[in-house]
Protein backbone atom coordinates (compact mmCIF):
# COMPACT_ATOMS: atom_id res chain seq x y z
CA UNK A 1 0.00 0.00 0.00
CA UNK A 2 1.29 3.49 -0.82
CA UNK A 3 0.03 7.01 -0.32
CA UNK A 4 -1.28 7.31 -3.88
CA UNK A 5 -3.32 4.13 -3.67
CA UNK A 6 -4.68 5.01 -0.21
CA UNK A 7 -5.72 8.53 -1.22
CA UNK A 8 -7.07 7.07 -4.46
CA UNK A 9 -9.25 4.60 -2.58
CA UNK A 10 -10.42 7.32 -0.18
CA UNK A 11 -11.24 9.62 -3.10
CA UNK A 12 -13.22 6.80 -4.71
CA UNK A 13 -15.02 6.10 -1.43
CA UNK A 14 -15.75 9.83 -1.04
CA UNK A 15 -17.28 9.97 -4.52
CA UNK A 16 -19.51 6.97 -3.84
CA UNK A 17 -20.65 8.38 -0.48
CA UNK A 18 -21.18 11.91 -1.88
CA UNK A 19 -23.49 10.57 -4.57
CA UNK A 20 -25.41 8.27 -2.26
CA UNK A 21 -25.93 11.06 0.31
CA UNK A 22 -26.88 13.58 -2.37
CA UNK A 23 -29.64 11.34 -3.69
CA UNK A 24 -30.77 10.29 -0.22
CA UNK A 25 -30.87 13.79 1.32
CA UNK A 26 -32.34 15.59 -1.69
CA UNK A 27 -34.64 12.59 -2.29
CA UNK A 28 -33.96 13.13 -5.96
CA UNK A 29 -31.69 11.67 -8.62
CA UNK A 30 -32.22 14.52 -11.11
CA UNK A 31 -29.16 14.94 -13.29
CA UNK A 32 -27.75 11.55 -12.31
CA UNK A 33 -27.25 8.88 -14.95
CA UNK A 34 -28.79 5.65 -13.69
CA UNK A 35 -27.04 3.84 -16.54
CA UNK A 36 -23.61 4.81 -15.26
CA UNK A 37 -24.55 3.64 -11.78
CA UNK A 38 -25.69 0.28 -13.17
CA UNK A 39 -22.39 -0.03 -15.01
CA UNK A 40 -20.49 0.70 -11.79
CA UNK A 41 -22.51 -1.96 -9.96
CA UNK A 42 -21.55 -4.41 -12.72
CA UNK A 43 -17.90 -3.29 -12.50
CA UNK A 44 -17.77 -4.02 -8.76
CA UNK A 45 -19.69 -7.29 -9.05
CA UNK A 46 -17.45 -8.72 -11.75
CA UNK A 47 -14.27 -7.45 -10.14
CA UNK A 48 -14.90 -8.45 -6.55
CA UNK A 49 -16.01 -12.05 -7.09
CA UNK A 50 -12.68 -12.93 -5.47
CA UNK A 51 -14.37 -11.99 -2.19
CA UNK A 52 -15.69 -15.55 -2.35
CA UNK A 53 -12.33 -17.15 -3.15
CA UNK A 54 -9.51 -15.26 -1.43
CA UNK A 55 -8.90 -13.03 1.57
CA UNK A 56 -6.26 -10.34 1.16
CA UNK A 57 -6.82 -8.01 4.11
CA UNK A 58 -9.57 -6.59 6.29
CA UNK A 59 -9.16 -3.27 4.47
CA UNK A 60 -9.47 -4.94 1.08
CA UNK A 61 -12.51 -6.98 1.98
CA UNK A 62 -14.34 -4.22 3.85
CA UNK A 63 -13.77 -1.65 1.09
CA UNK A 64 -15.04 -4.10 -1.55
CA UNK A 65 -18.18 -4.77 0.48
CA UNK A 66 -18.74 -1.04 0.99
CA UNK A 67 -18.30 -0.33 -2.73
CA UNK A 68 -20.67 -3.10 -3.76
CA UNK A 69 -23.23 -2.17 -1.10
CA UNK A 70 -23.23 1.53 -1.98
CA UNK A 71 -23.36 0.82 -5.72
CA UNK A 72 -26.48 -1.33 -5.40
CA UNK A 73 -28.02 1.06 -2.89
CA UNK A 74 -27.52 3.92 -5.36
CA UNK A 75 -29.08 1.93 -8.20
CA UNK A 76 -31.99 1.04 -5.90
CA UNK A 77 -32.55 4.70 -4.98
CA UNK A 78 -32.49 5.75 -8.62
CA UNK A 79 -34.67 3.05 -10.15
CA UNK A 80 -36.96 2.14 -7.27
CA UNK A 81 -37.23 4.61 -4.41
CA UNK A 82 -36.88 7.92 -6.27
CA UNK A 83 -37.68 6.65 -9.74
CA UNK A 84 -40.15 9.51 -10.19
CA UNK A 85 -37.21 11.93 -10.20
CA UNK A 86 -35.14 9.85 -12.62
CA UNK A 87 -34.53 11.84 -15.79
CA UNK A 88 -34.78 8.96 -18.27
CA UNK A 89 -35.12 11.23 -21.30
CA UNK A 90 -31.65 12.68 -20.84
CA UNK A 91 -30.09 9.41 -19.70
CA UNK A 92 -30.17 8.02 -23.21
CA UNK A 93 -26.63 6.75 -23.79
CA UNK A 94 -26.69 3.36 -25.57
CA UNK A 95 -24.71 1.31 -23.03
CA UNK A 96 -24.74 -1.73 -25.31
CA UNK A 97 -22.22 0.19 -27.41
CA UNK A 98 -19.94 0.04 -24.37
CA UNK A 99 -20.66 -3.38 -22.92
CA UNK A 100 -20.35 -5.40 -26.13
CA UNK A 101 -16.95 -4.04 -27.32
CA UNK A 102 -15.61 -4.14 -23.75
CA UNK A 103 -16.78 -7.74 -23.40
CA UNK A 104 -15.15 -8.71 -26.68
CA UNK A 105 -11.91 -6.94 -25.77
CA UNK A 106 -11.83 -8.70 -22.38
CA UNK A 107 -12.02 -12.07 -24.12
CA UNK A 108 -9.30 -11.13 -26.63
CA UNK A 109 -6.83 -9.24 -24.44
CA UNK A 110 -6.29 -10.54 -20.92
CA UNK A 111 -3.56 -11.92 -18.70
CA UNK A 112 -4.88 -15.47 -18.80
CA UNK A 113 -7.90 -17.14 -20.26
CA UNK A 114 -9.74 -18.12 -17.08
CA UNK A 115 -13.26 -17.07 -16.12
CA UNK A 116 -12.18 -15.04 -13.08
CA UNK A 117 -9.41 -13.31 -15.05
CA UNK A 118 -11.71 -12.48 -17.98
CA UNK A 119 -14.36 -11.12 -15.62
CA UNK A 120 -11.71 -9.03 -13.86
CA UNK A 121 -10.45 -7.75 -17.23
CA UNK A 122 -14.02 -7.01 -18.34
CA UNK A 123 -14.49 -5.06 -15.11
CA UNK A 124 -11.30 -3.05 -15.66
CA UNK A 125 -12.21 -2.15 -19.25
CA UNK A 126 -15.83 -1.39 -18.34
CA UNK A 127 -14.85 0.90 -15.49
CA UNK A 128 -12.79 3.03 -17.87
CA UNK A 129 -15.90 3.96 -19.89
CA UNK A 130 -18.65 3.56 -17.27
CA UNK A 131 -18.82 7.32 -16.64
CA UNK A 132 -19.65 8.10 -20.29
CA UNK A 133 -23.46 7.94 -19.85
CA UNK A 134 -23.13 10.43 -16.98
CA UNK A 135 -20.89 12.82 -18.94
CA UNK A 136 -23.17 12.42 -21.96
CA UNK A 137 -26.23 13.25 -19.84
CA UNK A 138 -24.59 16.38 -18.43
CA UNK A 139 -23.62 17.52 -21.94
CA UNK A 140 -27.26 17.06 -23.00
CA UNK A 141 -28.78 18.93 -20.05
CA UNK A 142 -26.00 21.52 -20.31
CA UNK A 143 -25.56 21.78 -16.58
CA UNK A 144 -24.82 19.83 -13.41
CA UNK A 145 -25.48 20.54 -9.75
CA UNK A 146 -22.41 21.54 -7.79
CA UNK A 147 -22.54 18.40 -5.67
CA UNK A 148 -22.57 16.27 -8.83
CA UNK A 149 -19.41 18.00 -10.04
CA UNK A 150 -17.72 17.24 -6.72
CA UNK A 151 -18.76 13.61 -7.16
CA UNK A 152 -17.24 13.53 -10.64
CA UNK A 153 -14.08 15.28 -9.48
CA UNK A 154 -13.44 12.69 -6.73
CA UNK A 155 -14.29 9.86 -9.10
CA UNK A 156 -11.91 11.12 -11.78
CA UNK A 157 -9.18 11.88 -9.25
CA UNK A 158 -9.20 8.33 -7.86
CA UNK A 159 -7.97 6.67 -11.06
CA UNK A 160 -5.47 9.48 -11.69
CA UNK A 161 -4.01 8.71 -8.25
CA UNK A 162 -3.98 5.02 -9.17
CA UNK A 163 -1.81 5.88 -12.18
CA UNK A 164 0.70 7.40 -9.75
CA UNK A 165 0.32 4.29 -7.58
CA UNK A 166 1.28 2.09 -10.56
CA UNK A 167 4.36 4.22 -11.25
CA UNK A 168 5.29 3.89 -7.57
CA UNK A 169 4.72 0.09 -7.59
CA UNK A 170 6.67 -0.37 -10.81
CA UNK A 171 9.63 1.58 -9.42
CA UNK A 172 9.62 0.03 -5.93
CA UNK A 173 8.06 -3.39 -6.47
CA UNK A 174 8.56 -4.09 -10.17
CA UNK A 175 4.76 -4.49 -10.34
CA UNK A 176 3.40 -3.86 -13.82
CA UNK A 177 -0.13 -4.46 -15.08
CA UNK A 178 -0.47 -2.98 -18.56
CA UNK A 179 -4.20 -3.76 -18.77
CA UNK A 180 -4.97 -1.80 -15.61
CA UNK A 181 -2.63 1.02 -16.64
CA UNK A 182 -4.05 1.28 -20.18
CA UNK A 183 -7.64 1.30 -18.94
CA UNK A 184 -6.72 3.72 -16.14
CA UNK A 185 -5.22 6.12 -18.67
CA UNK A 186 -8.34 5.99 -20.86
CA UNK A 187 -10.53 6.48 -17.79
CA UNK A 188 -8.57 9.50 -16.57
CA UNK A 189 -8.38 11.10 -20.02
CA UNK A 190 -12.17 10.98 -20.28
CA UNK A 191 -12.33 13.28 -17.24
CA UNK A 192 -9.79 15.80 -18.54
CA UNK A 193 -12.42 17.96 -20.21
CA UNK A 194 -14.47 17.88 -17.03
CA UNK A 195 -11.42 18.57 -14.82
CA UNK A 196 -10.67 21.68 -16.87
CA UNK A 197 -14.22 22.99 -16.47
CA UNK A 198 -14.32 22.02 -12.79
CA UNK A 199 -11.16 23.98 -12.02
CA UNK A 200 -11.85 27.01 -14.23
CA UNK A 201 -15.49 27.35 -13.21
CA UNK A 202 -15.00 26.13 -9.65
CA UNK A 203 -16.96 28.21 -7.11
CA UNK A 204 -18.11 30.80 -9.63
CA UNK A 205 -21.70 29.74 -10.18
CA UNK A 206 -24.12 27.46 -8.38
CA UNK A 207 -25.06 25.53 -11.49
CA UNK A 208 -21.84 24.65 -13.24
CA UNK A 209 -22.48 25.06 -16.94
CA UNK A 210 -20.85 22.29 -18.92
CA UNK A 211 -20.09 23.10 -22.54
CA UNK A 212 -21.43 20.27 -24.74
Amino acid sequence: MNVFRLTGDLSHLAAIIILLLKIWKSRSCAGISGKSQILFAVVFTTRYLDLLTSFISLYNTSMKLIYIGCAYATVYLIYVKFRATYDGNHDSFRVEFLVVPVGGLAVLINHNFSLMEILWTFSIYLESVAILPQLFMISKTGEAETITTHYLFCLGLYRALYLLNWIWRYYFEGFLDMIAIFAGLVQTVLYCDFFYLYVTKGGKDRKKVMLP
Binding site: D9, K64, Y67, A180
Partner: peptide
Protein backbone atom coordinates in the same frame (compact mmCIF):
# COMPACT_ATOMS: atom_id res chain seq x y z
CA UNK B 1 4.71 -12.52 -15.36
CA UNK B 2 4.51 -9.57 -13.02
CA UNK B 3 0.91 -8.83 -13.92
CA UNK B 4 -0.29 -12.09 -12.43
CA UNK B 5 0.60 -11.11 -8.90
CA UNK B 6 -2.33 -11.44 -6.53
CA UNK B 7 -4.90 -8.81 -7.28
CA UNK B 8 -4.52 -6.82 -4.10
CA UNK B 9 -5.90 -3.56 -5.52
CA UNK B 10 -9.51 -2.45 -5.36
Amino acid sequence: KKANQTKDEL
